[in-house]
Design a protein around this nucleic acid. Structure first.
Lengths: 362, 362
DNA sequence: TCATATCATCGAACCGTTTCGAACCTTGAT
DNA sequence: ATCAAGGTTCGAAACGGTTCGATGATATGA
């Protein structure tokens, strides 16, 4: 006996003394129903606590009003803020969202994508584990697919990302201006367009300044605290340690800070640290962290906008154009960055907020 | 033309030269189908990339295999970790989850609950804005409702919570043992059983030690950084400041740390800080934060277990028993707590992990 | 008074599954 | 050769909505 106190339109119709189609018309405010019947139907709905069955409606309409989302790492504040943006924009448009966590595992990601297709979600928002996703092929024909925080290799696609190249370029220039010459960069696995663009931005700025990148000052690890910590120790204990460390993701940044603390190396006096991704806690870390802030919730909102556009286009049989939305980041300078030890330049702590300048979108 | 390359069982049946019901039997591995037909059907499914339509199945079965979840604050790491536990356990049992963020607003929470009912989710997991929820009345008859991180006023209900009273009691005792006598407590709005239990645990420990609670040393604010910061300033600048501050939630803890930093008050030398809720970043705050850690993902997992049990019970027509799961927390002592200034007791920094002892569950 | 146009309401088919009883085909026993 | 039993396969109804063409009622004009 699965049906409990749940009523159907038929029940409402019976109570109101009208036909089912009239109830439907009232519920959806479609077609013309006399004020009298409208009144009667509404009263019946109220009395029974009737709510339409989304599944049945979805079956008939071919649209579920659900958007699926698969995130690489749900415990990372960056993705949580993106999710929040998605939530806001979705609810504003009458959509629910199903959230899945791929936990960095490509197979799990694929499993989730399949499950979302089974649910016949109207669109899928994906922050993938890597950029080599063949996923669009499998799923892209069934529902619009929007990539977040990643531009997949095959470019004919919808995506929303921060301009990582520009952000990294700008940040590196800032460190160079402070007088740093030995700058180390640590990044996660290089299978992600995001990581690659950030590394490229760094490279480009260094080349432009004609500063060589020391052999072991470009390190790859995995995006977690431990990896950051280990690479940090290794860098700082090397024979020729950097004067500044630029960590390309928030987890690894924390690892670096731990390594500094453990080695009792004063920051920023001896070594500066610059992080990618800003978050609440950055302000109370020791020292307060200078970092690149991405427009996280805007990423989420824009992704939903793209998805909704594609859904509408699909309904009208129109081809969905490929759109890459590119957003600006901003540099939040706090206390973890300053001039290198020997340099006698201006006193450290700037508090200006500079913004990377990029094309708004294409 | 909403249907694209999406095939139905009818299509599969036609291609395999069998009836729809046979396809269904194969898909669900139910009934007896000869090896030969099974083979043919599977080949057809493979060839067409067929996936059953969850909505249609749900309509027929009266079960969607979706669990709905409404969270008070999706940006709080505590709830994110709970969510992760929910995700893990749900996927393990073949359920999807719809996540909603009520953002602390009761009306929005209600809106989400209604939407989830419309979706006919099989169960609802709720971390409510306040404990005075009349929500179970509206929704509880349609689908099992499990409260997380909160025991609602009306007790005949399913819930999973940390034993907040015990946690707070234990933590207060720890501060008392260090020699503190002037302990201030700051908490969020008192509309939540969680807050209230924590305050009570504190009160109880103080009474037991026959230490009076100073008039303005019990403060209520809202659960965010700013509120913690303001209360922190006010406490620390008062004529008779506390030697220890016990913050009952993670947001306000950060505010306290900011206030200390701004006033240049050394912690823990002059004032100790103890937080509720542990998280990654706590270890790299300045100073590393002593805090009570809740078994976050276990809360999520147990909530799903309860929900699944209730779903099964409901199917068999059995009454769903009321169950309150009570979980243990643990005290993680780092560097932000130590003996009060004048006390000459043992050197600060203990690193023991003590666990609050409570009844495992009822 | 009758044909016609307009408007409100209704009935039934359909969306993609599951399920249950009926129909069919073997096989073995009489 | 006939029948019963047992095992596979099939057909059709149901789930709860939406939609479209048909129907009935009412008003309009000649």
């Amino acid at each position: 006996m699965p049906k409990q106190n749940t009523y159907t339109m038929r029940d409402v119709a019976r109570l109101a003394g009208v036909s089912v189609s009239t109830v439907s018309a009232v519920v959806n405010q479609k077609g013309i129903v006399s004020p009298e019947l409208t009144e009667r139907v509404q009263r019946a709905i109220e009395a029974m606590g009737f709510r339409p069955h989304a599944g049945a409606r979805g079956l008939r309409l071919g649209r579920t009003h659900i958007i699926g989302m698969v995130l690489q790492d749900i415990t990372n504040p960056f993705f949580v803020e993106v999710m929040r943006g998605v939530e806001d924009e979705a609810i504003k448009n009458g959509y629910e969202i199903i959230v899945c966590n791929s936990n960095g595992q490509a197979e799990l990601e694929q499993k989730h994508l399949n499950a979302l297709y089974t649910q016949r979600v109207d669109a899928i928002l994906l922050a993938p584990c890597d950029s080599y996703a063949a996923r669009d092929v499998m799923v892209g024909n069934h529902a619009p697919l929007v990539f977040m925080d990643c531009v997949p290799m095959r470019a004919e696609v919808l995506s929303v990302v921060t301009d990582n190249f520009a952000a990294s370029f700008e940040a590196t220039r800032y460190l160079l201006e402070l007088g740093h010459r030995k700058i180390a960069v640590i990044s996660g696995r290089g299978v992600h367009s995001t990581s690659m663009d950030r590394v490229e931005g760094f490279r480009h700025a260094m080349e432009e300044a004609h500063i060589p990148i020391l052999g072991d000052h470009l390190r790859h690890g995995v995006s977690n605290i431990e990896s950051g910590y280990e690479i940090g120790l290794s860098l700082l204990q090397s024979s020729d340690p950097p004067t500044a460390i630029f960590a390309l993701n928030n987890r690894m940044t924390l690892g670096i800070l731990q390594a500094l603390r453990e080695l009792k190396i004063p920051c920023p006096e001896q070594v500066s640290v610059l992080g990618f991704d800003d978050f609440d806690w950055a302000a109370v870390s020791d020292p307060p962290l200078s970092a690149i802030a991405q427009p996280t919730d805007e990423i989420g909102r824009r992704a939903v906008e793209l998805a909704l556009g594609a859904i509408r286009a699909g309904e009208e049989g129109a081809k969905v154009g490929n759109r890459q939305v590119l957003l600006k980041s901003s540099l939040r300078i706090r206390k973890s960055t300053g001039p290198p030890p020997k340099a006698l330049g201006e006193k450290s702590h700037r508090t200006v907020k500079s913004e990377t300048v990029t094309a708004p979108q294409s």
